[in-house]
Write a protein that binds this DNA or RNA. Structure first.
Lengths: 216, 216
DNA sequence: GAATTAATTGAACGTTCGTTTTATTAATGC
DNA sequence: GCATTAATAAAACGAACGTTCAATTAATTC
């Protein structure tokens, strides 16, 4: 056999990407074989090489597009306001929404960096650094304006990002908490962590109290 | 050739463990071959099978001992006091000290869970849950005593643990910050995050201010 | 409807993998 | 010093890996 009826390059490539994200997230990049991936797509392994010259090219493409998507999402969300508290709130909300919506891709981007060649690793890390820089700028502005109380901007930025990204580890849609509840709670934790003086105006406070939620 | 002069089972096994932790942390469990590991130890691959029946047994042993060590460390550190703020401070200090001292092993325990068989995964997760439960108890007690202001105990516990464990991603000994500085800053971030009313008595406040530390 | 291009299969290549087996030598016990 | 046990080497196993290549068929172009 050869070309199959109804076959379409664009659709196949999209199917490969989607299957790859989910398989790599579950098994890990090294543990996923090209044959497994092909089987999930419903195609022979050789067909994959029409879209991605090597396995690593596939991984890199997934990661690059994830990181570019994150930066683009922030660019669209970024508020016009220069109020640090409003900007921080927007950053947190965008970060959590983006990562919850792309749990598998985030897993891949965070866990499989070591499988990239040095040059490609550098490219991904540059994108990541650019994104983190945005948060540091917000924190610095807020600290200088006396709105935030921050000991160390760089360290606080890393702590916040790790705290927020950690959501994907335990969050499962449809379980105890909704995305809105999680976001609200993380927002208030963030504001307290940075010692925000003005308690974020337009942002509703969370409803849940401690006794409702001992077990996670 | 066969048995080499000076060879000693105990020493070889210890060397295998140490080499495995560092190799798996750098390359990942799947990417590390038994031949690479053997070469690092200075032995043939077949010799590894005298100490660990399979590659996965080796991984599981490393993880189990890491988690047991973490629980044991907390048991030794756990303060007699029942003051939630003091207990939380002790938890944070122990967590950061333990993980910074075992960066590679932590990496392995956090990243390679998917390479375990279901039964072994369950055993490791049980240890992890037991450890997290300790933090939730502290947070709950503090919230009920009105010392902490917490929206959701489970969610706050996860956020704190992810924030603290994240230290191992960027912390490098001998760089900008000392372990003591990092610990102090994380402690004050933690106390603010949980809305601690009484600002932790015996704990010194950090010296650094925002403008000192924009770049990380 | 013939020629061209796009999409895929099936088989094969050389490598490397985890692991097993057998033989061999060093250390230890008596 | 002889027998036994501990620790390793060397070679081999089949299986699986990423990747390539030639052949084949579907869709598209003119």
């Amino acid at each position: 056999m050869a070309r199959t009826t109804g076959s379409d390059g664009e659709k196949t490539e999209a199917a490969v990407r989607e299957a790859a994200v989910s398989l790599i997230a579950r098994l890990g990049y090294e543990a996923m074989s090209m044959r497994q991936l092909a089987a999930k797509v419903g195609v022979q392994a050789a067909a994959l090489y029409r879209y991605f010259p090597t396995k690593e090219d596939l991984l890199f493409t997934l990661m690059r597009e994830h990181m570019e998507g994150l930066l683009k999402a922030w660019d669209r969300t970024r508020p016009a306001s220069d109020d640090p508290a409003a900007r921080l709130a927007a950053y947190v909300e965008n970060h959590i929404a983006f990562h919850i919506a792309r749990r598998h891709a985030t897993h891949v981007s965070n866990m499989e960096l070591r499988s990239l060649s040095p040059e490609r690793l550098t490219r991904i890390l540059k994108l990541r650094t650019a994104y983190e820089k945005e948060l540091r700028a917000i924190l610095r502005d807020g600290a200088e304006a006396g709105i935030f109380e921050i000991d160390d901007v760089g360290l606080t930025a890393m702590a916040l990002i790790q705290m927020m990204t950690g959501v994907i580890v335990w969050f499962r849609p449809g379980e105890r908490l909704s995305i809105a509840e999680v976001t609200t709670t993380y927002l208030s934790m963030t504001m307290r962590l940075v010692g925000a003086k003005i308690d974020t105006f337009s942002v509703a406070r969370p409803v849940r109290r401690a006794r409702d939620a001992v077990a996670l």
